[in-house]
Amino acid sequence: MSVNPQESRAALAESSRRRFLFKLGAALSVVAASLIGIPVIGFVLSSFRRRGPSESWISLGAIESFPAGQTRLATYRNPYTRPWDGATGDIPCWVRHIEGEKFQVFAINCTHLGCPVRWFQESALFMCPCHGGAFYENGSRASGPPPRGLYQYDYKIENNQLLIKGGQLPTLSQPV
């Protein structure tokens, strides 16, 4: 009779010790896992939010290389590239020199789903090879599924150079 309470006390002590150890272990693991997990998730999602400006002024060359009244393909090296980007860092665009210092610089991407539009001087149309979108010389929508005219870069002329503001893939929710 005198042993029983002692035993049960011991059992109680052990079970509360077990419970404490379990709780301690679980809490420690949760804290440690979060300490590991937070930077991992932060790493993975780091490109979800953009940091810093993704656009800057880029030179397309001297304005003489774009004769007035013509639309020509120009390419530029994207301002933000990695050493292993290779040719994917070279971005094309269409430059239309209207006259004097009046230009229009169109993104290559069709406003429908981003395929590269081609310029046809004879019919003065941009045609898209994917889903049949067509645009007029001034970039406005001519026919097909595109919901709007071609994306246009902001441009300026400095020291006889044609500069455009670019650096990211244009999409409907974020035109150039």
Binding site: Y80, T81, G86, G89, G167, L169
Partner: peptide, 9 residues
């Protein structure tokens, strides 16, 4: 795209 354009990343 893991960046502003289609590229290495």
């Amino acid at each position: 795209l893991a960046g502003p354009i289609i590229a290495g990343e």
